[in-house]
Simulated scan of single mutants.
Amino acid sequence: MIRILSSALAASFLLVGAAQAQEAPSPGYGDWSFSFGGATDNRSKDASKSQGDAFVWGEAEWESDSGFFYVTPAFETIKASTGSELEVALAAGIRPEVAGFDLDLKAEHKWHVDANPGTDDDGWEFTADVKRSIGPASARLRLQYSPDSTGSTEAWTWVALRGGWDFTDKLTATAEVGRREQDNSVDYTGWNAGFTYALTSHIEAEVRYYDTDADPNNPQYADAVVAGLSFSF
């Protein structure tokens, strides 16, 4: 685990160095942005991907000049049933606007690094977000699907509705409820609520409560208060 964390942290610093090198975007070639951070638990779809342990993550994003098309390589530390402690991903998507709604349509391929031999160590994930903001209020409907996930889980779907409110230009509260149904794994309903606060234009802190209606004795589905810090350039 220490070796995996060291590699992930080194990748984070490389992302920062690359970000600082992008002082002036090149017209006609799109723009790069970079972010990394860590939290006390790695929560995805309200379930833990790190068995309740802390994790680190990082990503880079290239966006076309129009903002319509983007590509994102990323990594995050995990504790998976495949034996892997590091997940890497490559995603591509588009961000159109339709009838006043912002859409984000993305296809992503994920790999579990150093997974146990014979385990299913990769999978596709497709995401469709529909977002709308009116004044300080915001809402997002998220639909996700995988035809064959990593590990023993096969096809799954996730549907979630999130609402948010900007109290100030720095402080935002959001709450979300979602439903996940999986072949060869647990079906559950999850929810979360919390706050994000912009410490600076590049640093954001977050505190969020997560819970599910699945087995509370399993750290993957147990409730938790998660604190995190992220940096973006």
Rank of each mutant, 00 (worst) to 15 (best):
R162V: 03
V113C: 05
V159H: 09
T40V: 09
T189P: 00
A222I: 03
A47H: 01
A205D: 05
D120V: 03
Q220M: 05
V71Q: 07
D129C: 03
R162G: 12
A173D: 02
S230E: 12
V207K: 08
Y197M: 01
A107H: 07
G190A: 11
G194W: 04
Y29W: 13
Y145G: 02
Y209Q: 15
F231Y: 14
G17K: 11
T200I: 02
H112F: 05
A160V: 00
V159R: 13
T174D: 11
E108D: 12
N192W: 01
A19C: 08
F36I: 00
D166S: 14
L15Y: 10
L161W: 12
E181F: 04
T189R: 10
R142A: 15
Y145S: 10
G135M: 14
K45H: 06
I94K: 01
A193V: 11
E181P: 05
A227Y: 07
W32V: 06
P216R: 02
F195A: 13
A11T: 11
N42Y: 09
T82N: 02
F231P: 00
V186R: 15
D114A: 15
N184L: 08
V56C: 13
L14H: 05
R179C: 00
Y188T: 07
F75I: 07
V186T: 15
V130C: 11
Y145N: 08
S35W: 04
S26F: 13
V177F: 10
E176P: 00
D166V: 09
F126C: 01
A92F: 06
D183H: 11
D121H: 14
Y209E: 12
M1L: 08
L9G: 12
L14A: 14
D114R: 15
